[in-house]
Design a protein around this nucleic acid. Structure first.
Lengths: 343, 343
DNA sequence: TTGAAAGCGCTAACAC
DNA sequence: GTGTTAGCGCTTTCAA
């Protein structure tokens, strides 16, 4: 078995429309019509069509999508840009986006850019250079300008999960404010009065909305304590959460914390670990709630905000494909309602 | 802001090499040489080159990679085919493959095909139709024939993590047998004598090697019990693990189990959950070990086999790019040594 | 030092 | 009914 990298050995590199046209004794136009299922349109005789199909399958013919795309201007490929594909939330998003896209005949290219502005633009450009038809973007911090410029060019994009309020574009997000408000209200109804919140230290709207929902809920209860907020950096989140929690439970001004609200499942995981190490009984001395399911400790059932990831993915794909296929559309902003799981 | 989908509005769709050639007053050949950094080769005068670069950047010119690829035969794109991108192991693999590929100037397209043979071939073909330069495949069950045929065509692939022993091709795997042997030996040294193993019920070599390592280790200790094996289906693994463990600890013939070895981190997670529910003290009545870190229960430190995912990813990318760029190469089989983490 | 021209594989308007 | 032709945007040989 010798393998060479000459084109001869690339799969089917030698069997083109031309070669099957030659084999059948027709022109490649005829072959193109038949293989694209446009025999009616091209008024090809059934007998020729049949012959062409036979030869094509015997020769194991496959389209060269590159050539096709160059000609048509469409690649039937979309990109998904996220911060980190190894994050559970994004991985799940990616999975569902792929399923839905595949279902509609599109390939998806996933790009992980880190929470790193410097990687964002080059990656997006690389994708556009390859002529993806459109992009689903979960924006990272400080990329508003870049995305705005992209939108100006008319390139089809939809923002998912995170967004910038001033950016006029298609987007599908969840009602972070409402969900946050609801679940913090639950903690209050359970009797908590000194509830602290841990969230990521970023400028992204979805974080801010979660914070606002929390503050609004506290505001409703006159005898609830003022907001107690701890902001956590991405890079060293585990350490920072650990530190924050230890301080919250030792510092005199906050020592009577009876509720903890985590803005993400990841933060909750770290937080719970520290609580257990400190020997603070969860559900007794302190009530917990968070975004995303955090059921990793057996027999510990924490109320949480269930984000409809699948729905969000499918909606994002549908919106994008509509924009790609139907062209100019009014911008749409879909807000999905998360389910608050009480227990 | 009006957006239309005519090509006019596609980013830079209007600025081609021709258009910048016209602007400068040269031919597109000259532009091509300059923009590809081949001014020497094309013996372009510095002044013309400078002018071209200026205009290109002023007009915000970008290559049409589609056209380029059609011409050169290379897309600088590789594919990664895995069962499920939302699995932690594969997500991590994907992340590192992307990093390494990016570093070498390649884009990677991740394809999730499920543990589903029916999705495998169509996906691979879709990728090849788009002329990816090569593929890293983590094979799923019953795809040996398909992969063999792929290899015959000379298409560059490397197998990662899982493999078929009879398939002559590049591959990078870990020493599953050795790791399994070592860690089960550890359990034995700790005093366990009735160790059960839970693994996935598939034909894949890596599972079988893990089983063999377990059996071999038991064989070394004359007073160790015979192998006690429970095979678990993918689809309903949580339920099956739960059932298996309950049976193992209630059944008379196996009731004295003092060690449990899980073939993957996922299986371990489910198993631990059941053990905790049953109130069986881990580390006392029963010792546990597994593949992949399973530290999700605070304060529970389980010995495990650390798989060098990053190393495996980088090696796979390097092998693949060598094959793509250097052409015909002898098949290589790299076996990475996992670290056994005792504690 | 530069440019003309061929061609990668395909689509689609327009002839015949 | 079927074929001719003109590109899509680029690279690269060869001639000037």
């Amino acid at each position: 078995m010798t393998t060479t990298r000459s084109n001869k050995s690339r799969p089917n590199a030698r069997v083109s429309m031309q070669s099957i046209a030659d084999l059948v004794g027709v022109s490649r136009t005829t072959v193109s019509f038949v293989l694209n299922g446009k025999e009616k349109e091209g008024r090809i005789s059934p007998v020729v069509a049949k012959k062409i199909k036979e030869v094509a399958r015997r020769e194991n013919y496959r389209f060269n999508e590159l050539a096709r795309s160059l000609r048509t201007g469409y690649t039937r490929t979309i990109a998904l840009v996220v911060a980190d594909i190894s994050d559970r939330f994004f991985a799940s998003l990616a999975f569902h986006v792929q399923q839905q896209a595949l279902h509609k005949g599109y390939l998806v290219v996933i790009a992980s850019v880190g929470e790193d502005k410097a990687q964002f633009l080059p990656t997006v450009e690389m994708l556009i250079d390859r002529r993806v038809d459109g992009m689903i973007i979960v924006p990272i911090q400080h990329t508003e300008q870049e995305i705005a410029r992209l939108i100006e060019t008319g390139f089809p994009i939809v923002l998912a999960d995170r967004y910038f309020p001033d950016l006029k574009t298609d987007r599908v997000i969840i009602d972070n404010f409402g969900a946050s408000f609801q679940i913090v209200s639950l903690l209050l109804e359970k009797g908590c009065r000194r509830i602290a919140m841990l969230l990521y230290d970023d400028q992204l709207m979805h974080m801010q909305e979660r914070q606002k929902g929390y503050e609004k809920a506290l505001g409703k209860y006159p005898n609830a304590a003022q907001p107690i907020i701890r902001k956590i950096g991405y890079a060293t989140s585990q350490k920072e959460v650990d530190k924050a929690i230890r301080e919250l439970f030792h510092d005199n001004t906050t020592c009577n914390i009876d509720g903890l609200f985590f803005a993400t499942g990841g933060l909750a995981m770290f937080g719970i670990e520290t609580l257990i190490q400190l020997g603070i009984p969860i559900g007794k001395q302190v009530q917990i709630a968070c975004f995303d399911r955090a059921d990793f400790v057996p027999n510990l059932r924490i109320p949480y905000v269930h984000q409809p990831i699948r729905k969000m993915s499918e909606t994002a794909v549908d919106m994008l494909l509509t924009r790609i296929e139907k062209g100019d559309q009014p911008d749409e902003s879909k807000i999905l309602e998360p389910r608050v799981i009480l227990r």
